[in-house]
């Protein structure tokens, strides 16, 4: 029915070769083609941040990125955010600070926070708030998420 394109990229440290529909977004590729469901669909329009991934070290909304544009790139999802002590500290901090309720925004929030902390290792409260502005959460009121991220400073 539609045009397919072969791409090759690094996903969570592993080289992948996939054939994707040219109209498909990276979110659908990750979830439906590759089967990694930690990246969430929240709105499909880049407004909620639930689908945040990192591409070449930069966080972005995977719903707004064409799957074919992953070709040749280095893509990290929540499942791949493992080989790094900062990511472990971040996840633990979310748990300990009560930053997780329904948890649906959490993977995207952590991907964004990880990116933020790489850019600003000593991010203060205002910087963290600004940094996660594009990630919506309906349960927590953000406070415990901000606390969790700020607490990772120096970890």
């Amino acid at each position: 029915m539609s045009l397919k394109h072969d791409i090759e990229f690094t996903l969570n440290g592993v080289k992948r070769h996939v054939s994707v529909d040219v109209t498909m977004n990276a979110l659908a590729m990750l979830r439906d083609v590759i089967g990694l469901t930690g990246t969430k669909y929240g709105c499909g329009e880049g407004e909620c941040g639930a689908c945040t991934i990192q591409v070449d070290g930069v966080s972005l909304n995977s719903c707004l990125m064409f799957a074919v544009d992953c070709d040749g790139r280095n893509v990290t999802t929540i499942e791949g955010l493992a080989n790094d002590s900062k990511a472990d500290a971040l996840r633990e901090s979310f748990v300990e600070h009560g930053a997780v309720q329904c948890g649906f925004c959490t993977p995207g929030m952590i991907m964004q926070a990880d990116h933020l902390l790489h850019k600003h290792p000593h991010a203060d409260e205002a910087c963290v708030k600004r940094g996660i502005e594009g990630n919506l959460c309906r349960c927590t009121g953000y406070k415990k998420i901000v606390d969790a991220i700020v607490a990772v400073d120096g970890a």
């Binding site: 929540i78 979310f94 748990v95 948890g103 993977p107």
Partner: peptide, 15 residues
């Protein structure tokens, strides 16, 4: 801490 938080924070929870 919420008991299911580690699973949720690692993207493993299946909604």
């Amino acid at each position: 801490p919420k008991m299911d938080a580690p699973e949720k924070a690692s993207g493993r929870t299946r909604y």
